[in-house]
Each structure stands twice: as structure tokens, then as C-alpha cells.
Design a protein around this nucleic acid. Structure first.
Length: 856
RNA sequence: GCGGGCGUGGCGGAAUGGUAGACGCGGCAGACUCAAAAUCUGCUAUCGCAAGGUGUGUCGGUUCGAGUCCGACCGCCCGCACCA
């Protein structure tokens, strides 16, 4: 006889079988159903590197558990998948190995899809999209044009990291020790005309709206708030003395206007227009070149010495025209914050103190600690703004007040006297999206000699990337593709040139969640679909996207609303956010003859009593778990796990043990133990299936109570994102069934319920048990079980008895017993009497259903 | 430096201010076996023969009662960082 062996758990047989059944039933196709509440679950879509890793398995399993549970609870669920498919790796692969970025990318997508399907995720694959599909980026271009017209896009000259070898702009994180990460060339700071989104228009709103994101991690909201970086202060103009024409005043910004009377110099950024104007002086030019060069790595910034150049220009103190302050150019003043110019108050600012000390500038205290003398300082005195200090040169004269009070007084004074005004500043800068690269969404504009910058006509969209490009030369292939680049002006018809910059890939991922609601539409979105499906009810992804991706998406949703592509309810697109931890693994290391580390894959390691060795017996150093990474070779390929244990084992394991927000350590023994457990459940189900139908057993009520408790606890565990606790409850319930000797009817009901409760984690095994135990239809499409509240209450409770807070005994009492009766029983308990030994009871605390504490 | 988080068995981790260590891993013992693997059963914070004592990073506080709340300290992790 051929066919599956019914006595063994064989995931390789049952998993493909049920995946096919779900496909045929179109079980996961999202349908707009006005009669049902909707639920939109989204995991951050992956970059198509070609291989899935355990982090993907964990991320998508979490989303799948939520999606499957919500579907069972009667929601109309949208759970889509796509690919964040533009970006540099495709171009780098083309440069290193030949081939074409498009072929590489679509090949990788096919490979990764083939690896994801065996996981049995409840994804609506009919909505799949890749951001490099012209169908997708064409709509992105349409929105770009709308946003241009709405004033949300502009061009300006900006200083960028320019790699002179690869001839491209690099992001800050691609510059390592001042050199391009790929070319190793010294990176230049070059001014280029770049495209920007006006995210700074929304600084105040993006900050204020964070308060409404109740179901986002506090940590993420805080990181975004810090990134937006609101500050309030005073902006005012110094009158200059000896400055070039056009620089009669110098605008400065300060958050500590209360220290104005301690000003001893003014300083401007090397990129300040005044510094530029002075560069005709070679000494100034030499200094600004030196000051701008400063490295970009964290250490360099931290240790960078403060350097300055005295311009000889002076400014008049606004409160005392007789007092003049020197104007310095200083390397620590940033052009793109505030006005790019400050006044220095060395007494109350650590940076200014360092600078003043170095260049012999005066250090004058404005305030001192209460009760302290105004004496020379050895370091800047910078108390909290909320602290009360003694002002010796304050606006309110000699007064004791907080910094906050003094700042308010200073702003009021400046505004009343008319020399300055209170302003709010944000650290958030406009979003530069220009990339001098091929594999990105072309910016759909045309440069015309007479009309200037003209958007492409919408009927000509998408502006499609040409396929016939080569990567044998550095630079952007679009720049040297004449037939693509040369075009006619949409306005006047004259010969013109296409923009060759492409968009930052963060633009692509800033609206894919909206596109999933109507992925094939010929407009970016469709009103009925976004109205029904938005917002994303649960978004799941890595903490590494806490700032950029999520902030850009929040901005982009607002921009889409402004241009009519999203309803106002969707300007905060993600109702709830969950950031999951990483999958980690031990690292196995040996050293080669030169003493360099050599890392080994987990599958090449033999664990022994003493530690670990290679197959040939070489001792291996075991380094504690860290994020799985190819360079450390501490990776476990999900495909291997699925091949040896099945997808259900992988899914169950990544959800068990650790809370989902924390890292989970992958261990071979844990994976094996999971497989054994699922095999036990399988065996248990087989045993129950073989019980005689009319068998009457014992303890039916106990098992049913355990079942209802399991329903309640597993459900609340899943709903509270405590998957590890839900799984712990499933273990308990499994053990309860295994130990029970109840009637066949009850045993069957219990195991069917177990399969339903396990199905979000182990959907294939659940279907198999469901069918075996006479469940109707697909387990996946059956309703989620409901706990009977009456079955959750026990008839009697066990109460611990404490004496002076130490547990000494316990009694079992009927649940409704009055407090007075409980007291009586407690005091009559022989252990209690022994411990009391005749002492007087001073106090007796009875917490009903909880505890009794006897105080003597 | 600024901001945030976390410290519980050999390990991952449970615990609305109310029996600390659920559940899992690992370990130990036993059953089955000629034997091993697999499987099953039991035990497993720690000291103690026991009675009992001690235990949630350290020190203090609030409380009838603290892993949980408050204060100080120690350690680890994460984010930001010359932002005026």
C-alpha cells in the first residue's frame, strides 16, 4: 500500500497538500465586504535580496498569526505582500557580475517568492507588487507631478557627499571615514541641484500628531520627536560693522536669550553666505575649506577640535550699542540649523566655553547658582532650564528665577523693544530625494531651455527606465543614454532634456501600503478601496525603520491627502505599530595560521559535552548569540529548517520562548524540540481518532474547563501580542488533553479546539487534525472558538495563608464563601495555629479569591 | 554628553501590589530495549537529613504584603549627538 503513513507526522506531505487546498478555496483573497469589519495587517515588505532569512520568517509569521486570527474572528482581512525592489544592490550586482539590474531583481523576486510560499502564509498573492514595476512607479510619478503642483516639491542647491570615482551622491551612512564605502575614494562635499520634498512644512504637525499614535511603541514616538527636534528661542539681527555690502545685519538664533548679556562673540558657519562673501580673501577661503573638510564618522565629530577664524567684522550688542563683538567663522556652526549664525555665551554653553578658552575670548557669567559668588569659571555652568538660579546680568536685573522664566522675559523684552522675535525651530530638514543612479523611479520632469523645469504630461507616464544601459563606466547610465535623455518639451515642443536623477527608494516605500488597496488601478489609489481598507490596522516591522521610513510615510500620506489620493482619515496610515526583535544565533569561531578569525556555519558544528568542535575534532570557540549575519556565518537557512522539520516547526519556534519585541535565539535543540512537540500533538490526535465513538470516560467537565481556559488565554495572548504566552498555554492544554481520560466526544471536541487555537501558528497541522477529527470545511475558514465565561470560574479556590507576609499554609474553600467564614477556617488551620503559637492576632486581611494575611 | 529601556534558576522566559520561577530548553533518575536511539513517567532555584532558612543587580523607603511602587547607586543594551 502506498500513500501517507498515518502513524507519523510528515510535514513534507501535509504542508503542500493544505497550501493547495487554500489556493483552490481562494481562502486569503481580500474582499471588500461592507457587511463585515475590515482588518488590514501589513508587514514591512522585503528587499528582494534573493534569499529569505529567519528574520523574515519571524516577521511574516507574526503578521500571519494576526491575520489568521482576525479572519477567524469574522473580519474581512487584507494581508498583502510586495517587494521594495529599487536600490543600489541591483546596480552593484550589475557592475560586479554583469547582467542587468532588472533581470537580477525579478530573478530574486521569483526566488524569494518560491521560498516564502512554503511557509503557508495567509497572503493575498493576487495583490503582489514590486516597486520597480512600471505599473507602480508610473503612479508614483503621477503623484510626484501632483505634489509639484501642490508646492510640496522643489529644487535647490544642496551640499552632498559626492563620490568622485563612482560619480554619485552617497548617503551619510555610505561614507566610512571620509571615503566612499565601495570606491574607497575620498568623498567631497559638493553643491548640487537636488529635488526635495517639503517635509519641513509638516514639522509641527508630524510632531503634534505623535500624541495620537497610542498604539505605537513609546520608544518610536520618542525617537521621531527627537528627530523632528523642536526648539523655541529668539531670533534677532546684529548690526554689523565693517561687513561687505548686503551684510548690514547678521541674523542669529538662540534658545537661551536670557544669556544675551553674557555674549562675547558671534560665530557663523563656514557655509554661511557671509563666509562665502569673504572667501575672496585667500586666508578665509583656506580656513573655510579646512573647516568644511571635517569627517563624517561619529568619532571624528566627537573628537573634532573647534577651530575658528576671526573675520575682523564686528557686530553691535543689541542692548548696548557701545559694546562690539567679534565675528568668527567656526567649524561647529551648522548652516542648516537656525540661521547658521549664533552669539557665543561661553559662561553657559560648553561648546562656546571651549571655543572662548582656546581663542582668549571673555567669559562673563549671566547667572550663578543660588548662594554662589560670581567668580571665574573652569567650565561652562549649564543648569536645567527649570532650575532656579541667581541672575547677576539678567533682564529682570538682579533676580532669582528659573531659566524658563528668564527666557520668557528676554523674549518679551526683545519683542517689546523690537530688536528680535520669539521663533520655533525644527531640526527636521527637507527630504532630499535625488539620486544619480539608474535603478530607481525616474523623476518625471523635463528641462527646457525656454520653459525651464516642466513636468512630463500624465498621458506619457510612466517615464520608463530604458533597458539598454551598461554599467561598465562609472556614473549614471541615464546621463549617457541620448535617446532616452533627449526629448521634446511638453509645453513648447522644443528639443529638451529629461531629468536623469531618480528618486530615493524611501519614496517607493512611503505609499505601498495605500497601493495594496488597489494594486492594479490606473490611478495611484481608488477612493472606494482606500476608504474601505485604510488605515493599516497593524503594521509590523523592524525597529531600524523607526525614524526614516515611518516618518517619510507619515509625511507622504499627508501629501497624498493634499493631492487627493488619500482620505483625511489616512494621514496617519498606521493605526498600530509593532517592532519585532531579531533572530539571533551563537557564533562559532576558530583562528587560522595567521591568527585571523574564521567563522563556521552552525550545520558544520558538532556539540560535545565540553563545548563544540568541527567534524574533524578541532575545538571551536562559541561566542554568545548575536544577530544572524552572513559575515559571522551564524545563519540558519529557513529552507533547511522547512526541509527537515516543516514550516509549522519554523513558525512555532520563532513565536515561542521570547516575547516578540525581544530577540529570539535560534537553537538547534529548540527547533528539534518544537518538531517533537508537534509530532506529539499529531500522535495524540491519531490516538483520539482511534477511540471507540461511544466510549464514556471520566473527568469530562475538567477537560472542558481546561479547554475554555485555553480558549480565553490563547486568544488574549494573541490579541496582546504575547505569542510566547499563547504558546505556553497551548502546551498546557496539550498536556491536559494527553493526561485526560474523558469521553470520546469530549476528547474530540478538545483536540478540535486545540487545532483551531494552534492554527494561526501551525496552520497545516491544524487542518490535518481538524479533518481527522470530523471538523467541517477548512479549519482556516471556521470561526474562532469562544470561551464560555461560566466555565472559567472554578467552584473552589485555593487560598494561601501568610503570617506576617510569609506563606505558611493554604486552604481550599468554596468560591462564594464569605470573608468571615474564610477567616474562621484560616485561623482554625493547624499549620496556622502552630505558627501563631498562641500569639494575639492584631490584624487579619482577607483578599477574596486571592490571599489571607495574618498579622501578629 | 542627552534621551530611553532592561537586570528573575544552568538557559529562553512567566507572574492586574497578593502562593516567585508558568511554559519550554537543558540536566538527572526510572520504564521499555540484549543494547542504543526514539518514546513514555517522574524530579529539577538554593542551603539543609528534616523542621525550616535564604532568594528577583546593590542599598534604603512606602505597604498587612514589593520582582512589581518610590529614592539613590552599580551593570548592560538601544537611539541621538557640535542642533545654538
Amino acid at each position: 500500500m502506498h500513500g501517507p503513513d498515518m502513524s507519523r507526522y510528515e510535514p513534507a506531505v501535509i504542508e503542500p497538500k493544505w497550501q493547495k487546498a487554500w489556493d483552490e478555496a481562494q481562502a486569503f483573497q481580500a474582499r471588500r465586504d461592507p457587511a463585515r469589519p475590515k482588518y488590514y495587517v501589513l508587514e514591512m515588505f522585503p528587499y528582494p535580496s534573493g534569499r529569505i532569512h529567519m528574520g523574515h520568517v519571524r516577521n511574516y509569521t507574526m503578521g500571519d498569526v494576526v491575520a489568521r486570527t482576525k479572519a477567524a474572528q469574522g473580519f474581512s482581512v487584507l494581508h498583502p505582500m510586495g517587494w521594495d525592489a529599487f536600490g543600489m544592490p541591483a546596480e552593484n550586482a550589475a557592475m560586479e557580475r554583469g547582467g542587468h539590474p532588472r533581470d537580477w531583481t525579478y530573478g530574486n523576486i521569483a526566488d524569494m517568492r518560491a521560498q516564502m510560499k512554503p511557509l503557508g502564509l495567509s497572503i493575498d498573492w493576487s495583490r503582489e507588487l514590486a516597486t520597480c514595476d512600471p505599473e507602480y512607479y508610473g503612479q508614483q510619478q503621477a503623484m510626484f507631478i501632483d505634489m509639484m503642483e501642490a508646492g510640496l516639491v522643489y529644487r535647490k542647491n544642496a551640499v552632498v557627499n559626492w563620490d568622485p570615482v563612482d560619480m554619485t551622491v552617497l548617503a551619510n551612512e555610505q561614507v566610512i571615514d571620509g571615503r566612499g564605502w565601495r570606491s574607497n575614494a575620498l568623498v567631497e562635499r559638493r553643491a548640487l541641484t537636488q529635488w526635495f520634498f517639503k517635509i519641513s512644512d509638516y514639522s509641527a504637525e508630524l510632531l503634534a500628531a505623535l500624541d495620537g499614535l497610542k498604539d505605537w511603541p513609546e520608544k518610536v514616538r520618542l525617537m521621531q520627536a527627537n528627530w523632528i527636534g523642536k526648539s523655541t528661542g529668539l531670533q534677532f539681527a546684529f548690526k554689523t560693522v565693517g561687513a561687505p555690502a548686503g551684510f548690514e545685519t547678521l541674523e542669529v538664533y538662540t534658545t537661551r536669550p536670557d544669556t544675551l548679556l553674557g555674549a562675547s562673540f558671534a560665530a557663523i558657519s563656514p557655509d554661511h553666505p557671509l563666509a562665502k562673501a569673504l572667501e575672496s580673501d585667500p586666508a578665509v577661503a583656506a580656513f573655510t575649506a579646512l573647516a568644511r573638510k571635517g569627517g563624517t564618522s561619529a568619532e571624528e565629530i566627537e573628537t573634532a577640535e573647534k577651530i575658528g577664524f576671526d573675520t575682523g567684522i564686528r557686530v553691535k550688542h543689541p542692548l548696548d550699542p557701545d559694546q562690539e563683538l567679534p565675528v568668527w567663522i567656526a567649524n561647529f556652526i551648522l548652516m542648516d540649523y537656525g540661521t547658521g549664525a549664533i552669539f557665543g555665551c561661553p559662561a553657559h554653553d560648553a561648546r562656546d566655553f571651549e571655543f572662548a578658552t582656546k581663542y582668549g575670548l571673555p567669559i562673563t557669567s549671566v547667572f550663578v547658582a543660588q548662594g554662589a559668588e560670581d567668580s571665574p569659571l573652569t567650565e561652562a555652568y549649564v543648569p536645567m532650564k527649570s532650575e532656579r538660579v541667581h541672575y547677576v546680568r539678567g533682564f529682570a536685573g538682579n533676580a532669582v528665577q528659573t531659566g524658563e522664566e528668564a527666557i520668557a522675559a528676554a523674549v518679551a523684552h526683545a519683542e517689546a523693544q523690537g530688536y528680535g522675535k520669539g521663533v520655533t525651530n525644527y531640526r527636521l530638514r527637507d527630504w532630499g530625494i535625488s539620486r544619480q543612479r539608474y535603478w530607481g523611479c525616474p523623476i518625471p520632469v523635463i528641462h527646457c531651455a525656454t520653459c525651464g523645469v516642466v513636468p512630463e504630461k500624465k498621458e506619457n507616464l510612466p517615464v520608463e527606465l530604458p533597458y539598454d544601459v551598461s554599467f561598465d563606466k562609472p556614473g549614471n547610465p541615464l546621463d549617457r543614454h541620448p535617446t532616452w535623455r533627449d526629448c521634446t518639451c511638453p509645453k513648447c515642443g522644443a528639443a529638451a532634456k529629461r531629468e536623469t536623477d531618480t528618486m530615493d527608494t524611501f519614496v517607493d516605500s512611503s505609499w505601498y501600503y495605500a497601493r495594496f488597496t488597489a494594486p492594479r488601478a490606473t490611478t495611484p489609489t481608488v477612493a472606494d478601496d482606500v476608504d474601505y481598507w485604510m488605515n493599516v490596522d497593524q503594521y509590523i516591522g523592524g525597529i531600524e525603520h523607526a525614524i526614516l521610513h515611518l516618518l517619510y510615510s507619515r509625511f507622504f500620506a499627508r501629501a497624498m491627502h493634499k493631492t487627493g489620493h488619500l482620505p483625511v482619515k489616512a494621514i496617519e496610515p498606521f493605526n498600530a505599530l509593532f517592532t519585532q526583535g531579531m533572530v539571533t544565533h551563537e557564533i562559532y569561531k576558530t583562528t587560522d595560521a595567521q591568527g585571523r578569525p574564521v567563522y563556521h556555519l552552525p550545520e558544520d558544528i558538532v556539540r560535545t559535552e565540553a563545548g563544540a568542535t568541527l567534524a574533524d575534532g578541532t575545538a571551536v570557540e562559541v561566542i554568545p548569540s548575536a544577530k544572524m549575519s552572513k559575515s559571522k556565518k551564524n545563519v540558519v537557512d529557513p529552507m533547511h529548517i522547512i526541509a527537515s522539520f516543516g514550516a509549522d516547526t519554523a513558525r512555532w519556534f520563532v513565536m515561542s520562548d521570547s516575547p516578540p519585541e525581544r530577540d529570539v535565539e535560534w537553537t538547534a535543540s529548540g527547533a528539534e524540540a518544537t518538531f517533537k512537540h508537534l509530532s506529539r500533538v499529531w500522535a495524540l490526535s491519531t490516538r483520539i481518532a482511534e477511540m471507540p465513538a461511544d466510549h464514556k470516560g471520566e473527568g469530562d467537565d475538567d477537560l472542558l474547563r481546561a479547554m475554555h481556559r485555553a480558549i480565553a488565554e490563547v486568544t488574549s495572548g494573541i490579541e496582546g501580542f504575547a505569542f510566547n504566552k499563547a504558546i505556553a498555554k497551548l502546551y498546557e492544554f496539550t498536556n491536559a488533553i494527553a493526561r485526560a481520560s474523558a469521553s470520546t466526544v469530549v476528547m474530540k471536541e478538545a483536540i478540535r479546539t486545540l487545532s483551531r487555537l494552534m492554527s494561526p501558528m501551525t496552520p497545516h497541522l491544524a487542518e490535518e487534525i481538524w479533518t481527522l477529527q470530523g471538523g467541517t470545511g477548512l479549519c482556516t475558514q471556521s470561526p474562532w472558538p469562544k470561551a464560555d465565561p461560566a466555565m472559567l470560574i472554578d467552584d473552589s479556590v485555593t487560598l494561601p495563608i501568610q503570617i506576617n507576609g510569609k506563606r505558611r499554609a493554604e486552604i481550599s474553600v468554596p468560591k462564594d464563601l464569605s470573608a468571615a467564614e474564610v477567616e474562621k477556617l484560616a485561623l482554625a488551620n493547624e499549620d496556622v495555629m502552630r505558627f501563631l503559637a498562641g500569639q494575639t492576632v492584631r490584624k487579619l486581611i482577607v483578599v477574596p479569591g486571592r490571599i489571607i494575611n495574618v498579622v501578629v
